[in-house]
């Protein structure tokens, strides 16, 4: 190959390099676009619905202007709290067990079940909770809704706990055991604190994930146009309110649905960003 030929192929490669760089930049930008568009659209449509009434009042009877989504806002918080209380302690314990026992039949069973549970359609989970809790209690309830969401949270919190704890070096566990620290204290006071940021992140992400679930709530929490704090009564939730209002024929309800969507997305975004922040802030270096 002569010198000029070599210079030519080099020029060709360099221009190819630029083209390729341009292409990946373009597609990276495309991946940002959907989120920006959704947020922008919600901002335009939703913000106009926001005022103090929107947050503090319950929906007005049909035909009256005004009213708010206080019932759904509070309802969603209660549902998430119930789901959190049911799923997180269990998820944590199972996650610890799986991280500590890599190979035995119970661990294999549990790991497989959790994986499969994760892929069960949410509507089916709703149906199952309906037969477990709604039928025996003879009422739709916040408890049933929370239980359905908990079933959806469980796999995520198990997996995130297991994966976080597995990354913790064995040396750390040995250090504690070599000081004569009993096994359970080693786990609770050394291993879990070292993995706390990962565990909390997993829990927050799973909360964010189920906060927007509608299907499992349809026949568990059901919905409630009034403000309710009772565990054994039907309760409203943001996604259900959005579903119900958006499919109604009334412009005033559409406005509320847009506002509620905006609030829901902002809430989920907040959970995600908090999780990101905590991972960075609480990261433990070994």
């Amino acid at each position: 190959m002569t010198f000029t030929e070599a210079a030519k192929t080099l020029l060709w490669r360099q221009s190819l390099d630029k083209v390729f760089f341009g292409v990946i930049c373009f597609f990276s930008f495309l991946s940002v676009l959907p989120l920006v568009l959704i947020l922008g659209y919600l901002l335009v449509k939703g913000v106009s619905a926001l005022n103090w009434q929107f947050f503090c009042r319950v929906p007005q009877p049909l035909g009256e202007i005004g009213g708010g989504i206080a019932n759904a806002l509070l309802g969603s918080l209660i549902l998430l709290a119930v789901a959190f209380l049911l799923a997180v302690p269990l998820g944590l314990l199972v996650g610890i067990y799986l991280a500590e026992n890599k190979k035995n039949w119970l661990a294999d069973c549990a790991r497989l079940s959790v994986e499969i549970l994760q892929s069960v359609p949410s509507i089916v989970i709703g149906l199952v909770v309906y037969t477990w809790l709604v039928l025996p209690l003879k009422t739709f309830s916040a408890l049933a809704g929370g239980a359905a969401l908990a079933l959806m949270m469980l796999p995520v919190s198990v997996r995130s706990t297991e994966e976080t704890l597995r990354l913790i070096p064995l040396e750390l566990k040995e250090a504690a055991l070599a000081l004569g620290v009993p096994y359970y204290r080693t786990i609770l006071r050394v291993i879990v604190p070292s993995g706390l940021s990962g565990i909390v992140t997993g829990v927050l992400l799973s909360l964010a994930r189920v906060a927007g679930e509608t299907a499992p709530l349809l026949f568990t929490a059901f919905g409630n146009p009034f403000l309710s704090l009772a565990l054994f009564r039907p309760i409203e939730s943001l996604p259900h309110l959005i579903f119900y209002y958006a499919t109604s024929p009334y412009a005033e309800w559409h406005r509320l649905a847009w506002g509620a969507s905006f609030v829901l997305v902002v809430g989920v975004l907040f959970l995600n960003l908090t999780a990101k922040f905590l991972t960075r802030r609480w990261r433990v270096r070994f």
Binding site: P169, E171, L172, E174, A175, A176, L177, A178, L179, G180, V181, P182, V190, P193, S194, L196, V284, R285, F286
Partner: peptide, 20 residues
């Protein structure tokens, strides 16, 4: 075993202070 380990200290290959 726990009492044994309290009476006999151990230092490992890789330094392993508790990071938290």
């Amino acid at each position: 075993a726990i009492l044994v380990r309290r009476r006999i200290g151990m230092v490992f290959q890789r330094p392993n202070p508790f990071p938290t």
